[in-house]
Computed example of a mutant assay.
Amino acid sequence: MGGNALKNVVTRRYARNEYYILKERILNKLQGRIDQFDVPREFPCKESFGDIDVLMVCQSSMNIRNLIEELFNPNEIVMNGDVYSFDFEQFQVDFILVPEEQFDNATVYLSYSDLGGLIGNICHKIGLKYGMQGLWMNVHTQEFDPTTTSTKLILSRNVKEIFDFLGYNYEQYMKGFDSENDFFQWIIDGKYFRCVYFDDQQLNHAHRQRTSKRPIYIKFRAYLNQLSKSETNESSQDHNEFIRKIRQQALIYFKKEEDYHQGLCQREEKRQLKDKYNGRYFCDIDDGKHMVRVHMKNFEKRFGKTDEEFHQWIVDTDHDTIKLEIEKYKNEIKHSQSS
């Protein structure tokens, strides 16, 4: 993933033909050792490669480092989360471990160098999220207020289902793209594509920094600049309404309306519970905050043997009664300290 993970060995770029030969050797070594593995799709016209990504599903008992050492005898292995990078024949190999339910979508996400990044940027602009785990939306306590807490609602992990909703031709993806321009046009033909979503002014500083290092993204921007597409500017209010409609359409399309409303109720319940019971009620004990968590735990034991029992007590008890019980606890602590 990037070709720069290894710092202590010499690696090089491989020309297309030698890359395909090495790729076959690597995958052949994994036959019978890994249950499920694949390499993201590449442009057939790509002249050279700096690394190879191999996505795989492994049993929890599998020791990947030992497997790499046994099959490839590398000089260096670097682990970064679920990614194991190592050298083989002076080439960087990245083993990317993914859960079985994410395997298909993760493979698509990493295909054609930046498919996931381009579609992910579009989804972000329409109130959705797209990543290796699929398509989802964040359910905030208050819509369009990212400062409020949120939960992740997975809409789908099915690649075709996701592409159909976003207006992407799944059959064309499966057939493959002969050139980068064919791929770019496929992205543009999506239902929710807007040129303005790829305007630098639409990106924050961190995002601009990341995209400046992504070759396919840069080429895609150049391709867009050659087009003479005019788009009307939307006000923030119009765009919020646009997002609201898309999110509602997504909930209906993926049959997630009930899950969405349940998520809203859970967020609201957590907010109400936090208002009724939180650490600030214990901050004035012992003239410091370092014992707040201890006092909260001691207080909670009075009304529940388990976290679930105490949670239910908070739900069933009115705010004034909770405050009264906290004051009783605090007075007892102060009395014991003074005696």
Rank of each mutant, 00 (worst) to 15 (best):
S336M: 14
W186H: 01
Q31R: 11
F165A: 02
F37A: 11
Y130C: 05
F254I: 01
Q209A: 07
L118Q: 02
A106N: 11
T151V: 15
Y173F: 09
N181T: 14
Y112N: 04
E101P: 00
Y223M: 06
N225Y: 10
Y130V: 04
W313V: 08
Q185N: 08
N169I: 01
E89V: 10
I326Y: 15
R65H: 06
V159N: 10
Y223F: 13
G2Q: 10
Y173D: 02
E18T: 13
Y173H: 02
C58V: 15
G279M: 07
G131A: 07
M79A: 04
I119P: 01
Q36P: 15
L71N: 12
H311W: 14
P44D: 11
Q172T: 05
G116A: 02
F184Q: 03
V294M: 00
N66W: 10
N80H: 06
M62G: 05
F242S: 08
I126T: 10
Y168D: 03
D189I: 06
M174H: 02
E268L: 12
K255T: 09
K175C: 06
Q202H: 04
K219G: 02
A5N: 12
N204Q: 06
E69T: 10
M174V: 13
C283Q: 13
T141E: 15
Q209T: 13
R25M: 11
P215S: 07
F220K: 06
W313R: 06
N105A: 01
L264H: 13
T306R: 01
D259Y: 11
R12N: 14
S336H: 13
I119G: 02
L128C: 06
H205K: 12
M291C: 01
R33W: 13
K256D: 08
I154G: 03
Y277R: 12
M62E: 15
H311L: 12
F49K: 02
Y14E: 11
F303N: 02
G288A: 01
F49G: 03
D38A: 15
Q59L: 06
E258D: 13
K175Y: 05
R41I: 09
L224A: 06
C265Q: 15
N233Q: 05
M291E: 07
N158Q: 05
E18C: 08
P146L: 10
K46S: 05
H207L: 08
K29F: 09
I34G: 14
C123A: 10
Y197N: 01
E309V: 02
Y197P: 00
I122D: 05
N278K: 09
T306P: 03
R41V: 06
M132A: 13
R271Q: 12
S179I: 07
F303V: 06
V196R: 02
